[in-house]
Simulated scan of single mutants.
Amino acid sequence: MSAAFTALVIFLFTGALLPVNRTFRQTPGGVLVFVASNGTHTDVVLPLQDSLTGRRWRSHFPDSSFQARFAGYEYAAFGWGSEGFYLASYDHQLHGPATVLRAAVPGPALMHVRFLRQAPHPGPHMVPLRISAAEYRVLTSQIAASFRQDSLARYELRNAAGYTPHDFFFRATGRYHALRTCNDWTVRTLRRAGLRAPLKSPLAGPVLYHARQAK
């Protein structure tokens, strides 16, 4: 094992333990957001429309029929990840070594958006946070910047359908690779908005752990 590899492993494990924005405190009456996980991947769950900041996500989705389809939905889960890894997951089977190795080298990314009829229930894999309007503006700006947009500022669909009738893939900015994973995207997004997060974490567990420590 080379010294560089050993240093990288130490950095990743140490980064997962070290909190950034450790003085972050929740805002009573603030915008309700969530940090979510399926055990391996993390998402940021946001209201589709918020009265405190005026952010309206629906206006950026492809067309009026798409927007009308989800008019009664209140929240959406946003995640970023490897295009190849996401699309290889359509069969819900375990990924083979070739898929994992391809995702380790720089490649295109997608945004995964899952629409929710209402705010999710807090639980072991769903951490609620009340944040200020200023923090929410930064948080949503970070997420919006991860979408590729057309000339009308609409997000570009990658596929006509996702895993279910309620989720879709959109073309994303940035390149996915072994040192910039889906969970690293969540960490950076939370950190830049001033929310508590690990310094660095390729794994989902530390992301939820640090979000849960927010008072």
Rank of each mutant, 00 (worst) to 15 (best):
F78S: 00
A119V: 01
S146W: 06
Y155P: 09
G79T: 03
A153Q: 13
Y86W: 11
F170H: 09
T164V: 00
P128L: 01
S59P: 12
A68K: 11
R148V: 09
A109N: 07
A68D: 13
R180V: 11
Q49P: 10
A119G: 01
Q149W: 02
Q142K: 07
S51F: 12
L94P: 14
S141Y: 05
G79A: 09
S64W: 14
G123D: 11
A172G: 03
A145M: 03
D50S: 06
D50F: 07
L129R: 04
F85D: 11
E135Q: 13
N159E: 15
L48A: 00
S65Q: 15
G81D: 08
G174V: 03
W80L: 05
S65Y: 14
P128M: 06
T164K: 00
F66I: 09
V127I: 14
V100L: 14
T140W: 00
P124W: 15
G96L: 00
L129A: 04
S151H: 01
Y163H: 07
T140S: 02
P128F: 05
W57M: 02
F66V: 06
T140V: 03
A104N: 00
R58T: 03
L94S: 15
R171A: 07
D91Q: 11
L101K: 04
H112N: 01
A76Y: 10
L157D: 13
F170L: 05
C182A: 10
D150T: 03
R130V: 06
R55E: 14
F85V: 10
T186R: 13
L157A: 12
G107F: 02
T173Y: 07
R180Q: 13
H112F: 02
A71R: 09
L116W: 09
H95I: 09
R175G: 03
T99F: 07
A109Y: 06
W57N: 05
N159Q: 15
L101R: 03
R55C: 13
H121Y: 13
T53N: 04
